[in-house]
Design a protein around this nucleic acid. Structure first.
Lengths: 275, 275
DNA sequence: AACAAAATGGAATAAAAATTCCAAAACGAG
DNA sequence: CTCGTTTTGGAATTTTTATTCCATTTTGTT
């Protein structure tokens, strides 16, 4: 055990992180789990016991001990000492911190960030309150039954469409994004047995509406992700998912929309996997 | 010992301070010392032992124990627990909860949505708590001074990159997304006076790292948006923005990342408009 | 498939910390 | 000054926590 890395003890949090980065590529499974969990929860080391951290990382305590030693400490206590000394609590009050951020200057980047964080949080809460389980279940059913899932969304809906496609791919759901690159129109790709997810918000995108109408005309099921039940997209849709997104200035946080898209994709992927 | 104050246990840091204020007038010498020291070092309770605090207050450990009991706790451990938990509410760990939920088979789309909403909300709160105003201001300064802002991000960072580019465009900031369409490499497009925003999370994308390294080698400023200060992207960056995002399996909510990107874009747009 | 090396989990042990208890000291009232 | 009461310090005890060790499993190699 004296072969590999220099066995100097990290003396600062900075050094600790460096060592962690060095190691984490060359670690076996359990120790890797430790490394990942510790990397994500570094701030809890100071106030936790071996048993608690081990439980969090889902490893036995002895694995965590070994991890501490790989990091160059004599044991957990020595490692914890480093963090206890460096500990200065950024007190947990989220709302206080938010207020501070806003007040540090009306136009400052930090103040903007605070506003967008707040907008995102409100959007998510609104989504949780208003989401219609029935429509969601229906949308999942429709997409789970489809051969290929087509996804369309432009402008601010575009990031959502691309993330949705990405997650579908990750979950082995055959999917295709209609992104209009090169002004190409891929509507021929819509085949019997497929389904379409169309995403658009006011001001509604012509291309998206057109593709949805086309799909509907051919008898393919359409899932609409939009802002209101009265959206022009609604008339073409079999299932309508509305997202209450709170704007700040001219810009949407997209938080709620992404959360909805993600749920949809994972639910569909799971349903297919089981079916 | 049943005479004096109400024997309810303080449940919040707030209540703790109230009780402390009530008591400190009516305490004998040694206990008063405890009260004073604790009042001045409340934040050390979470990370200290009885012996350490007692030494700090210059009293024997047993005096400190008595003090804890006067405060309405069963002992020191119970008191410490309050401060350890207050440091980060939402314990036990969120990812453990998700795992449990997944295993208990409550995989309905609505339950899934609730979890993603919660993940997004936590991510946003964490972002508000940990965001570094300095780095953010620096990133804005760098980008505001650039001719053209280049943006790169693949896989799950891709939606963020595309939204960032979209908002830049809306705000009349010359920008260009490197999206690798057609396996084209647009690195020649990086010109003196430009700047790059590189976005990647573990597992880090080769292409993004390569482009960042290239830009840096040519002396262009690079703003990194990543998950951790130890990210391989960090070594190529002039300003590092870290985003604490809560994962569900392989999928990020992206809420925090989008909020950060949005703030960045709007702040840069505003700064340029004024300049 | 058989072997050696590495990794792992859990029970056993050691160390450290919290908590209790009581004899001695300080205090206050008469 | 004296007696009863409160407060105090520290040693003894209990509980919790860290750490080690080794039998078993897993992994990688030939």
């Amino acid at each position: 055990m004296d072969s590999a890395a220099p066995m100097t003890t990290p003396a600062t949090v900075e050094e600790f992180r460096e060592r962690l980065a060095e190691l984490s590529d060359s670690l076996p499974k359990r120790l890797r789990q430790c490394a990942d969990y510790i990397a994500a929860n570094t701030d809890r080391i100071a106030v936790s016991t071996v048993a608690e951290l081990a439980a969090g990382a889902d490893v036995p305590p002895s694995a965590l001990m070994r991890f501490c030693q790989m990091m160059g400490f004599s044991g957990f206590s020595e490692m914890q000492k480093l963090f206890r000394e460096a500990y200065s609590p950024g007190w947990p009050d989220y709302s206080t911190r938010l207020k501070n951020l806003k007040e540090t200057g009306a136009g400052s980047p930090a103040a903007l960030l605070a506003e967008f964080v707040e907008a995102g949080r409100l959007s998510l809460e609104a989504l949780a309150k208003t989401a219609d389980e029935g429509s969601l279940a229906q949308a999942v059913a429709v997409l789970a039954a489809a051969e290929t899932v087509h996804v369309v969304g432009f402008r601010r809906a575009y990031p959502v469409a691309s993330y949705l496609t990405y997650v579908f791919e990750k979950m082995s759901v055959p999917s295709m994004q209609h992104d209009g690159v090169g002004k190409l129109d891929h509507r021929f790709a819509l085949r019997t047995g497929d389904a379409l997810v169309a995403i658009t918000f006011a001001p509604y995108s012509e291309e998206t509406l057109a593709l949805a109408a086309d799909a509907r005309a051919r008898g393919l099921p359409v899932v609409a992700v939009t802002d209101h039940l009265t959206s022009p997209l609604a008339r073409h849709a079999n299932a309508i998912l509305t997202v209450p997104e709170v704007d700040f200035g001219a810009f949407r946080s997209l938080s709620a929309t992404i959360a909805l898209a993600l749920s949809l994709a994972v639910a569909v992927g799971t349903a297919r996997g089981e079916g």
